[in-house]
Design a protein around this nucleic acid. Structure first.
Lengths: 350, 350
DNA sequence: TTGAAAGCGCTAACAT
DNA sequence: ATGTTAGCGCTTTCAA
């Protein structure tokens, strides 16, 4: 079971280990004959370069570390749910890693820890990834970015909002998307449109609210404080949201929930109150989670191409790794899509 | 930016690198004073052992590789969906890795490749994980197991069915669960119960079908070939499933779909056909995906504690790694839960 | 175009 | 209880 090493390959092909290394790395100045000999020996022996030896000796580890928020993860773990966002994200990254021959390591990072910097630099010192992939909320966390900068490691930020010149940023125009979906409701004749926002610390919450407000005022509609309630991105908070809204704004005909889970809650709350969607109430969400397709009625929402964003981020990161931080470009914006389904319809005029 | 090495720590604390190594690894025969000195130097320098150096020099890499099916992943990636099962699984593993100071690497493996063995041994030769985590369908793939055995690497198998003495197996009693949920329908008075199965290659499909059949015959109900249709675990195949069933078995009053996605499809198909669930038709699924809670009506199903299974698998694997394969125990069976929601009700008797 | 030799930062025998 | 010395399997100078 002794592993096949570069020495075995060198011996079998009758060349030096350096030559083998050259062939393996596709370096120039190697004769075709030598290349051929080595390739044959590699094939015959089933040789594979050791990742750890390579990262120890060389400058690169071929490792991409995805830094996932611990708190969020633990919460999901507790409730026995998966994380659709993360799952899609990982799929995207995985596909790119496979192509570019990188390996993906998934690490938990507690963004709310007060020893955050220490933990991060410890992690980086230990695994020495070539690049780091940041997911929300870490992608917008200045202390995280600072720590990575200090460690001198390249990173890509998915769904970032601020300081978009730092790292490879891949974003979606959340504000415009929220504007669009609100405008969609207005186009259907709705005037009294409620909003169930997400928690304020999330940049997504703020941006989506801004888009909603912009759409309202752009169409000459008044902003009504009573028509806005704050949720926490969970299903129950959506149920509560619509209950409050119905009380505060009895004439309400449409609701924009800041994410699908809450929109689904709104759907259920509306049903419980005897309202028929979309006849009595139009409901729209944001994210296009799988459930948006399975709900009754199916949910009008914004599709966020998370996997694509992640793939783009990974690609950007790898490009940067290759070119040694040569090119510095701005954020990459990925297009979203407004998916009109059954939950939104023309305002009732009886 | 030069990395802090064990030599730096040794120099600062005035001891040899071996002593530092001893302290770091918690080896015996170290005086408290020395331990103290080293700890201080480590702290002061912010020293972290290099993963690659450790795995190169030592016998262990502190790496767990999760082998995820490429085909399945690519399919999810194409359709822009996440994979709830995998997501939950990963959460469970991640929590354990964090505790035991292992790192998780996620790798795609194409179980249908005809160079499967080569790819696997190449992967193992390259990253040299201490242990491997197998997810379905790889966890039941003899060629995969053989390749891992040949490489001499320990593995845990999640959701395995066959040869449960190989590796650390963590399973759920799918057959019994299917039996239970079928019996649940029978107890509600249903006699004509349809089954939408999953694809045959999946052991889960076969086991669930077996449980269904056992429950039927155990309660003196005839097995009707026409009441069984094969789906492919997707939502559309559920829609098609109920369409076919209604045609083949007009008197049908209940359907057991082999997973939730298909059950949700059945729900939609039934609604499209003007049937009210559960008044006209009871529907049950399997998995308890998030959507099961958001559907209208909410879905009666079997809750599979995937995260727990994965955590248990990881724990078992790590134990085995520690004890050098000392203990050989059988499969670990994790309890499931029948969750009765709105989609199943007493048979209509008018 | 090719090769020899010196590390990379650890662990592991083998002293002491 | 502590230290010395080899490697682990590569990449990287530096020579030839």
């Amino acid at each position: 079971m002794a592993a096949v090493t570069i020495y075995d390959v060198a011996a079998r092909s009758g060349v030096s280990i350096k030559s083998v290394s050259r062939v393996l790395n596709g370096e120039p100045n190697v004769s075709a004959a030598l290349r051929e000999k080595v390739a044959k020996a590699v094939e015959a022996l089933g040789y594979r370069r050791s990742l750890s030896a390579r990262s120890l000796a060389g400058a690169s580890s071929s490792l991409i570390a995805a830094l996932v928020d611990a708190e969020l993860t633990i919460e999901h773990w507790r409730s026995g749910r998966g994380n659709d966002y993360l799952s899609r994200l990982e799929l995207g990254v995985l596909m790119e890693c496979r192509q570019a021959d990188y390996h993906l390591m998934v690490e938990l990072v507690d963004h709310s820890s007060d020893t955050l910097e220490r933990e991060l630099s410890a992690l980086l010192a230990s695994i020495r990834p070539d690049g780091v992939l940041l997911t929300p909320p870490n992608s917008d966390h200045p202390r995280v970015l600072d720590a990575l900068d200090r460690a001198g490691v390249n990173y890509a930020r998915i769904g970032a909002e601020q300081q978009l010149s730092r790292g490879v940023c891949v974003i979606m125009d959340e504000r415009q998307a929220a504007f669009d979906i609100t405008a969609h409701l207005i186009a259907l004749g709705h005037r009294r449109i409620g909003l169930v926002t997400g928690p304020d610390p999330y940049s997504a919450s703020r941006l989506r609210r801004a888009g909603y407000e912009k759409a309202m005022t752009a169409h000459g509609l008044a902003l009504d404080e009573a028509a806005v309630v704050e949720g926490d991105f969970t299903f129950p908070s959506g149920v509560r949201g619509i209950e409050i809204l119905m009380e505060q704004v009895p004439a309400i005909t449409a609701v924009f929930a800041s994410n699908d889970d809450m929109a689904l809650g709104v759907l259920q709350g509306a049903a419980a109150a005897g309202m028929s969607v979309p006849r009595d109430l139009s409901v729209v969400g944001f994210d296009d989670t799988p459930s948006a397709l399975f709900s009754t009625p199916t949910l009008t929402t914004i599709r966020q191409p998370v996997a694509e964003m992640a793939a783009e981020a990974a690609r950007g990161l790898m490009t940067r790794l290759r070119s040694d931080e040569a090119e510095v470009r701005g954020a990459i914006t990925i297009p979203y899509q407004l998916i009109a389904r059954q939950s939104s319809g023309p305002v009732r005029t009886d």
